Computed example of a mutant assay.
Amino acid sequence: MSGTPPLVDDAVRWVRPHTPRGGPSAVTVAELQERHWPAVREIYATGIATGQATFESQPPDWARFAAGKPAHLRHVAMDEGGTVLGWVAASPVSARPVYAGVVEESVYVHPSAAGRGVGRLLLQALIASAEAAGVWTIEAKIFPENTASLALHQKLGFEPVGVRRRLGRMSHGPHAGQWRDVILLERRSATIGS
Rank of each mutant, 00 (worst) to 15 (best):
T28Q: 15
W87Q: 00
A151F: 09
W62D: 05
L167R: 14
P160Y: 06
P6G: 10
E104K: 03
S171G: 15
H75L: 13
G173P: 02
A67F: 02
T46F: 03
P17E: 15
S112C: 14
A128Y: 01
W62P: 08
Q124E: 15
R74D: 01
H110R: 09
R74P: 04
G157K: 06
G23Q: 15
V88W: 01
N146F: 08
R21Y: 13
V161L: 07
T83F: 05
A130W: 03
R64S: 15
I43P: 00
R180N: 07
T4C: 06
P17K: 13
V27D: 00
L73P: 08
V102T: 08
D79W: 04
R165H: 11
G162Y: 04
Y44C: 00
L7P: 01
P111D: 03
A125E: 00
R35W: 07
T147F: 08
A49I: 04
H75R: 08
S129H: 11
A11D: 04
V12H: 10
L7M: 08
F65G: 03
E31A: 15
V12A: 13
G193E: 09
R187M: 05
A66H: 04
T147L: 13
L121A: 13
A67V: 05
G51L: 07
H175K: 14
H110D: 03
S129T: 14
D10W: 13
A26D: 12
V12T: 11
D61H: 07
E42G: 14
V109P: 00
G117S: 13
R169C: 09
V118M: 03
G22V: 13
P70S: 08
I183T: 06
